[in-house]
Simulated assay, not measured.
Amino acid sequence: MSIRILTRSLLVATLVAGAPIAWSHGDVTPQPVDTGALPDLGKELRSENPFRVGNEHGSLNEEAIKVGRSGYAGNCAVCHGIEAMSGGLTPDLRELEEWDDEYFIGRVTNGTGRGMPSFRENLDQTAIWAIRTYVESLPKPE
């Protein structure tokens, strides 16, 4: 009987100790994003979302939302939740109003140093801004 309790205790301890590894961002494999008809925005990082209505490529806002939805699902949802509704372990991206565009692009391209990886090598600027456009299109939490 005591071997059974010891075995269960060891199993629980292993699961608890391994949980941070299982939930860490570092194990997420970034997925390519098909940017479709959106223009290639080049390598030099922009400081403002070009797909926001009223900006340089604002006429492509709806297309950017579609591309961003797909890009978000493959690269962000695993940590930040479906439709950016976080379960509490990571920021709810719908509520990050203090994140201006320049801060956002820096955070995504450089990572956070606290779990979020850099997407610099995996997502081009067009995909990143499309994801931002998608998140901005989501209703704010009540």
Rank of each mutant, 00 (worst) to 15 (best):
L93T: 01
A77K: 07
T35V: 15
N110G: 14
T109P: 02
D40A: 09
I65L: 07
E97L: 14
V33Q: 03
E95F: 03
T126E: 00
T90Q: 10
G68N: 06
I65P: 10
T112F: 07
S137W: 02
I82C: 11
V16I: 15
I65D: 01
R132I: 01
M85Y: 14
L89K: 06
S47K: 10
I105L: 08
S70R: 14
V28C: 10
R120K: 13
N49A: 04
G81A: 11
G36T: 08
S59R: 05
D92V: 03
E102H: 06
W99E: 11
L38Y: 00
D40S: 07
N75D: 09
G88Y: 03
L60R: 00
T7F: 12
D92K: 05
E98K: 11
P30D: 13
D34V: 10
P141H: 08
T126L: 01
I82Y: 12
I105G: 01
L6K: 08
P139M: 07
R46I: 12
E102W: 05
D92R: 02
G111L: 03
E102T: 12
A130N: 02
T133F: 02
G71W: 03
F51E: 00
L15M: 12
L96P: 00
T112H: 07
E142F: 12
Y103Q: 12
Q31F: 06
E102D: 13
N55L: 04
R4Y: 10
L6R: 09
I65C: 05
T126I: 03
K66L: 14
P117I: 04
T112G: 14
N55T: 07
K43G: 13
E56P: 09
Y103C: 09
P139A: 11
I128T: 03
L138R: 03
L96I: 04
S59W: 01
A77C: 10
D100L: 07
Y72H: 06
V33T: 12
V53R: 08
S59M: 12
K43A: 15
A17W: 08
I105K: 00
Y134S: 01
H80G: 11
N49C: 06
T7W: 06
R94C: 03
T109K: 13
S86V: 08
D34A: 13
L6H: 04
N122V: 10
E83N: 15
S9I: 08
R69N: 15
G87M: 07
M116N: 02
R114P: 02
T14K: 04
Q125H: 08
V78N: 04
G36A: 10
E97G: 15
T109H: 05
R4I: 10
S9N: 09
G113L: 01
G36Y: 01
L89H: 07
I105A: 05
V33N: 03
Y134I: 01
P141D: 10
M85R: 15
R107M: 13
V67G: 01
I3G: 09
P39T: 03
V78I: 10
T35K: 05
T90I: 03
G111Q: 00
E121Y: 05
D124N: 15
R4F: 11
P39E: 05
G26E: 09
T133P: 09
G74F: 07
G58L: 00
F119C: 06
A17C: 14
N122C: 11
V16F: 09
G87H: 06
D92C: 05
A84D: 06
A22N: 07
G74Y: 07
R114N: 09
G113C: 02
A64M: 04
